[in-house]
Measured scan of single mutants.
Amino acid sequence: MQIFVKTLTGKTITLEVEPSDTIENVKAKIQDKEGIPPDQQRLIFAGKQLEDGRTLSDYNIQKDSTLHLVLR
């Protein structure tokens, strides 16, 4: 499925993911596309910070959802 990741600069990254993918996995995909190390990434969805060990389906993230990427 496709999800979107919006950065603070207003750029939107499109990712191909599975509901069973972990947040860690998603961060690795963002690193592949953007070169941002996962340890600098914070992903936010519906006002919640997403934890590495959980999956997209744990957070009820569905296709065409938009996550927000904050760098630390």
Rank of each mutant, 00 (worst) to 15 (best):
D52R: 02
E34N: 03
G53L: 10
I61G: 00
T66S: 12
D39I: 04
Q49F: 03
Q62A: 11
I36F: 14
I30D: 00
Q62H: 13
S20E: 01
T9G: 08
E16S: 05
T9V: 05
R54T: 12
P38H: 06
T9S: 09
D58E: 14
V26T: 09
R72F: 04
I44S: 10
P38Q: 12
N25Q: 15
Q40F: 07
I13A: 03
I30W: 01
I44G: 02
K63V: 15
K27M: 13
P37S: 11
L8S: 14
G10F: 07
I44P: 00
S57M: 02
D39E: 08
A28L: 02
Q2K: 07
L56Q: 00
E24R: 02
G47I: 03
D39K: 10
Q2F: 13
Q40W: 14
T22A: 04
K6N: 15
T12W: 08
P38K: 15
L71I: 09
T7L: 05
V17G: 05
I23F: 06
D21V: 11
I61W: 01
G10D: 14
I30E: 00
I3Q: 00
M1K: 03
L8Q: 13
E34H: 10
D32W: 13
L15Y: 06
T66Q: 02
Q2V: 11
F4R: 02
N25H: 06
L67A: 04
D32H: 06
T66Y: 08
G53F: 14
E16A: 10
Q40S: 12
I36T: 09
L71S: 12
G10Q: 11
Q2N: 09
T66I: 12
D32K: 09
E16L: 09
G35S: 11
T9A: 13
F45L: 09
L8D: 05
L67F: 06
S57T: 06
Q2A: 11
D39A: 10
N25P: 02
L56P: 01
K6D: 14
L69H: 02
T7E: 08
I3E: 00
T9I: 07
G53Q: 11
I61V: 11
I61Q: 01
T12L: 15
Y59S: 03
L50T: 07
Y59M: 14
P38R: 15
F4I: 08
G47L: 04
Y59Q: 12
Q49K: 12
K33N: 08
D32S: 10
P19H: 10
V17A: 10
T7M: 10
T66K: 01
I13D: 01
I13H: 11
Y59V: 05
K11I: 06
P37Q: 15
H68T: 13
Y59I: 05
R72H: 13
E51P: 03
Q62V: 11
A46Q: 05
E24V: 08
K63F: 08
Q40M: 03
T12A: 13
R54S: 11
T7A: 09
K6V: 14
P37M: 07
L15N: 00
T66A: 15
P19N: 06
P38E: 14
T9P: 09
Y59H: 04
T9L: 04
E51W: 02
V26S: 01
D64S: 01
I30H: 00
K63T: 09
Q62K: 05
K63Q: 09
Q31L: 07
I3G: 00
G35P: 15
H68L: 08
G47V: 10
K33M: 08
E34M: 04
L56A: 02
L69A: 14
H68S: 12
T55S: 06
G10H: 03
F4V: 04
V5Y: 06
I23T: 15
T7D: 15
T55W: 08
L50M: 08
K29P: 00
G47H: 04
G53V: 08
F45M: 07
Q49N: 12
K27P: 00
Y59T: 03
T12S: 07
Q41I: 10
G53K: 14
Q49G: 13
T14H: 07
L71H: 07
L15W: 01
L43E: 00
A46I: 05
L43H: 01
R42H: 14
F45K: 05
G47Q: 03
D52V: 06
L71Y: 15
I36V: 06
Q31W: 10
Q40V: 08
G10P: 12
T14G: 15
K33A: 12
T14E: 10
S57P: 05
P37D: 03
T12E: 07
V5Q: 00
L69F: 09
D64N: 06
D52S: 04
V17D: 01
E24N: 01
I30P: 00
K29T: 07
E24F: 06
E24H: 06
L15D: 00
R54Q: 15
K6S: 13
L15E: 01
S20K: 13
K27R: 09
K33E: 01
Q49R: 03
D39F: 08
